[in-house]
Measured scan of single mutants.
Amino acid sequence: MDLSALRVEEVQNVINAMQKILECPICLELIKEPVSTKCDHIFCKFCMLKLLNQKKGPSQCPLCKNDITKRSLQESTRFSQLVEELLKIICAFQLDTGLE
Rank of each mutant, 00 (worst) to 15 (best):
D96V: 01
S76G: 05
C39G: 01
K70R: 15
K20P: 04
K55Q: 06
L49Q: 15
E84A: 15
E29V: 10
F93I: 08
G98R: 06
T69N: 14
C91W: 10
K50N: 11
D96H: 03
F43C: 05
C91H: 13
S72C: 13
V14P: 00
S36Y: 05
E9G: 05
V83L: 09
L86V: 04
I15S: 00
D67Y: 12
F79P: 03
N66S: 05
A92V: 04
N53K: 07
R78P: 14
L86R: 00
H41P: 00
I90F: 13
L6F: 09
K65E: 07
Q12H: 14
E100G: 15
S36P: 04
H41R: 02
N16D: 06
K38E: 13
L73I: 13
A17G: 15
S76I: 02
I89M: 15
I31T: 03
E75Q: 05
R7P: 14
Q94K: 11
S59T: 12
N66T: 12
V35I: 12
A17S: 08
L51I: 12
L52R: 07
K55P: 13
E29Q: 07
E29K: 12
C91F: 07
N16P: 01
C64S: 01
N66D: 14
K55M: 06
K38Q: 14
E23V: 14
L3P: 12
R71S: 15
C44P: 01
C61W: 01
L51H: 04
S36A: 11
I68L: 09
K70N: 14
F43L: 09
K32E: 15
P62T: 11
P25R: 11
K56P: 14
I21P: 06
A5T: 13
Q19P: 02
V14D: 02
P34S: 00
K65N: 14
K32P: 02
H41Q: 02
D40H: 09
I42P: 03
D96P: 01
D2Y: 11
C24W: 00
T37R: 02
I89T: 10
T77M: 15
Q19E: 14
Q81H: 13
I31L: 10
N53S: 11
L30M: 15
N66I: 12
P25A: 07
L30S: 09
L87V: 08
K55R: 14
V35P: 02
F93C: 02
T69I: 08
K56Q: 05
Q19K: 04
C27Y: 00
L87F: 09
C27R: 00
E100V: 08
E29P: 00
Q81R: 06
D67P: 08
P25L: 03
F43V: 12
C39R: 00
M48L: 05
S4F: 03
N16Y: 04
I26P: 00
C39Y: 02
I31P: 11
D96G: 00
I31M: 03
L3V: 09
T77K: 14
V11L: 03
K45Q: 14
V11G: 03
L30P: 08
I15F: 04
D96E: 00
I26T: 08
L87W: 14
K45I: 07
M18I: 05
I21S: 13
V11A: 15
D2E: 06
E29A: 11
T77P: 07
C91Y: 09
Q60E: 12
I68R: 02
F93V: 04
Q54H: 13
C24P: 01
V11E: 00
K38N: 13
D67H: 05
G98V: 04
F46I: 08
S76C: 03
Q81K: 08
C44W: 02
L99M: 11
L95I: 03
I21T: 10
K32M: 08
E33K: 10
C27W: 01
E75V: 03
K56E: 14
V8I: 04
K38P: 07
T69S: 06
Q12E: 07
D67G: 12
T97I: 04
Q54P: 06
R7H: 08
I31F: 03
A92D: 03
D2G: 06
E23K: 06
K32N: 09
D67E: 14
L52H: 08
F46V: 13
Q74K: 14
C24F: 00
I15T: 02
L28P: 02
C64P: 01
I15M: 14
K50Q: 05
D67N: 05
D40A: 10
T77A: 06
Q94H: 06
H41D: 06
E9V: 04
D2A: 11
E33G: 10
F46P: 05
E33P: 02
F46S: 05
E84G: 15
N53Y: 03
I26N: 03
S4P: 11
K88I: 12
V8A: 13
Q74E: 09
F93P: 01
E23G: 14
P62L: 11
K50E: 15
N13H: 09
L82P: 00
Q60K: 12
V8P: 12
E85Q: 11
I68K: 00
E9A: 12
I90N: 04
T37I: 13
I68P: 02
Q60L: 11
P34L: 02
L30F: 06
M18T: 01
E33V: 10
A5D: 13
K88E: 04
K56N: 05
C47Y: 01
K70I: 14
Q94P: 03
N13I: 08
L51R: 05
E85G: 04
M48T: 07
Q12R: 09
E100D: 14
N53I: 10
T37K: 01
L22F: 08
I26M: 05
L87M: 06
V14I: 08
S76T: 04
H41Y: 01
G57V: 09
R71K: 14
C27P: 01
E85K: 03
S72T: 12
M48K: 02
N16K: 09
L49V: 09
F43S: 15
A17D: 12
P34T: 02
P58R: 07
R78S: 04
L63P: 03
A17T: 06
I26V: 15
E9D: 05
Q60H: 10
N13Y: 07
E10V: 07
C47S: 00
S4C: 10
K20T: 13
P62S: 13
Q54R: 15
S80P: 03
C44R: 01
I89F: 14
F93Y: 06
K20R: 11
C61P: 01
A5G: 14
Q74R: 15
K56I: 10
L87S: 09
E85D: 14
V11P: 02
R78T: 14
T37P: 04
L86P: 03
F79V: 03
K56T: 09
V8L: 10
R71W: 13
I15N: 00
L51P: 07
E84D: 05
V83G: 10
L30V: 13
K45R: 08
C39W: 01
I68T: 03
C44G: 02
P62R: 11
S80N: 07
L51F: 02
N13T: 06
R78K: 05
L51V: 08
F79I: 02
C61G: 00
C27G: 00
C47G: 02
K50R: 09
F46Y: 13
E10G: 11
E10K: 08
I21L: 08
V83D: 01
P58A: 13
K70T: 15
P25H: 05
M18R: 00
E9Q: 12
R7G: 06
S72R: 07
A92P: 01
V8G: 06
C39S: 01
S72P: 06
D40P: 05
L63F: 10
I42M: 03
K88P: 13
